[in-house]
Structures are given as structure tokens and as C-alpha cells.
């Protein structure tokens, strides 16, 4: 049988198309990301959120950083020591930077320079997730925006996508900068991005996030937004609530109570 070039191209082309069908379909048909949590059913129907009572927080002694220290210790967050390569999961910024739209000439005296606790907002519509080229960051069913340190390629596009600056990059090996490593939580390598995970490793054991647990003033309230009787639902419906840059449509799940 004569086998012409044209026939070869036809067969090769059809074979190629055939082989591409499955991966091609997978691209179009949105595969559900795998849930690495030990008990996937545990989270269904939950939606975790946090409220920060600023008045209570400001009652604490000056320079209180209990929540920060608690978080950074259990999550092996390195203490680099200089601003350029700083890594932080929870920290404070001045009121006028957290809520530039809520400061004006006449309330400056009262609010300017007051510390506001900030952390990953665990957005309901998280921009960072869209930008990640490898799905190393994704949103779980219970609303927690997760980060896979083993899949992150360190392109830092999620940092460009996050309007809150909640993400940190490991500019060098963080391990020498960890004072006392917690062997129950992974340390990171150089070249990956990290951020607050709402203590998902504690939630799975039925514990509260460590920052919430540590706060002596009880300024941090954590709970399930889907439960109408939860403490957080009650406080959100009764008190005056701020969110950081709600106009961007990211729907932050960290609320500030004033």
C-alpha cells in the first residue's frame, strides 16, 4: 500500500487530537482541587471567620503582641530581623493605613496611629487564587485560603494579586531564623510564599486559632458564619463593623468592630 506524506500527516494529526482529548477536556471542565485535609466531611457547611474588637484590643497594655508571638511560634515563622525580607502571618499596622477611607481631619486625634491587627483576610472571593499558575493556593470549602508550600514555584504573582499585602516570600532559607522549631508544623524552604492559614491544623483538632486563644482581652472572636447562633454571627449583627477595602469585592472574612 502506498503511504503518502499527506496520509501520514492525517493519521498523526488525528492521533495527536485523540491524545489531547482527555487533558484538553480536563482543562475546560474545572477539576475540583484535591482536599488534603484528614477529614473532608468535617468542614462541609462551615464558613470560618474572625472578628477583631478594636476597642478591646486597644485596652491591652502598650505594645502587646501576644497573638503575634503565639502565631509565629507555632507556625515556625522565622524572625529575619530586618524589614526587607520580613515574614509575617499576623502583625499590626496603623489605623490610617488599614482604613484610609475612615480617617479624616476630625477624627485623626482619636484614631491616628492606633494599631490594627492584620492578617490574611481569607477572602470569600480571593484574588490570589486566580493568579497562581500552579494552583498552589486555593480556597477550601470552609472558606480557608490554603497554601501548598510544596507546589509553590515562587513566582510571587499571588503577592501582586493580594491587595492587602498579606503574603510573605522566603527570600532565603528561613530555618536558621527560627528560634525554637515546632515539629508539628512544616518549616518552609527558600523561594516559596507563605501566609496565615487560620490555624487549619488546630481547627481540625477542634481547637481555636492560636491568636484567638492567646488574647487576654478576648478581642478576637472566631466562629462559623453559617451557624446563626454563633458568637461571631451575633456580634456582626449587633456592632458596627469595618472591613479592609470592601470596595474591591474580595469579601474579606476578617471583620473589625469599632
Amino acid at each position: 500500500m502506498e503511504f503518502k506524506r499527506r496520509d501520514f500527516l492525517k493519521i498523526a494529526g488525528l492521533t495527536f487530537l485523540g491524545l489531547m482529548a482527555k487533558p484538553g477536556w480536563e482543562v475546560v471542565s474545572q477539576i475540583k482541587p484535591l482536599e488534603p485535609s484528614p477529614a473532608p466531611n468535617y468542614f462541609t457547611g462551615k464558613k470560618w471567620a474572625m472578628a477583631i474588637d478594636l476597642i478591646k484590643c486597644w485596652n491591652a497594655k502598650d505594645g502587646c503582641r501576644d497573638c503575634i508571638d503565639a502565631c509565629h511560634t507555632i507556625h515556625n515563622v522565622p524572625e529575619i530581623g530586618y524589614a526587607k525580607e520580613e515574614i509575617k502571618w499576623i502583625w499590626t499596622i496603623e489605623y490610617e493605613k488599614a482604613f484610609p477611607e475612615h480617617i479624616h481631619d476630625f477624627n485623626e486625634k482619636k484614631y491616628k496611629g492606633k494599631p490594627v491587627i492584620v492578617l490574611c483576610n481569607q477572602c470569600e472571593d480571593p484574588p490570589c487564587v486566580k493568579y497562581c499558575p500552579t494552583r498552589a493556593t486555593w480556597k477550601r470549602e470552609d472558606g480557608i485560603v490554603m497554601m501548598d508550600f510544596h507546589r509553590c514555584i515562587g513566582c510571587r504573582y499571588c503577592m501582586a494579586g493580594c491587595p492587602y499585602g498579606s503574603r510573605s516570600f522566603n527570600w532565603r532559607d528561613p530555618r536558621p531564623f527560627i528560634k525554637k522549631a515546632n515539629i508539628e508544623f512544616p518549616t518552609r524552604t527558600k523561594g516559596v510564599v507563605e501566609k496565615c492559614n487560620f490555624c487549619e491544623e488546630r481547627l481540625v483538632k477542634g481547637l481555636l486559632p492560636s491568636c484567638v486563644e492567646t488574647c487576654k482581652e478576648k478581642a478576637l472572636i472566631f466562629g462559623d458564619l453559617n451557624d446563626p447562633n454563633s458568637e461571631i454571627r451575633k456580634i456582626l449583627s449587633e456592632r458596627y463593623v469595618l472591613q479592609r477595602q470592601p470596595e474591591l469585592g474580595t469579601k474579606p472574612k476578617v471583620f473589625y468592630i469599632l
Binding site: 500552579t134 507546589r151 514555584i153
Partner: peptide, 25 residues
């Protein structure tokens, strides 16, 4: 871009775990 990556050893993850919602893809 590859020089800019934090983990250049994982650059092929962008193909292996390709996420087409990302403009980088």
C-alpha cells in the same frame, strides 16, 4: 522569568499543574 522564580527546580509545575485562569499561563 525563570531566573525570577523562587523555586526554579519546580518550573515545570506550571505545566504539570497548569491553572489556566492565571495570566501567567
Amino acid at each position: 522569568v525563570l531566573i525570577d522564580l523562587g523555586r526554579p527546580d519546580r518550573m515545570l509545575y506550571a505545566i504539570r499543574y497548569a491553572h489556566f485562569r492565571s495570566p501567567l499561563l
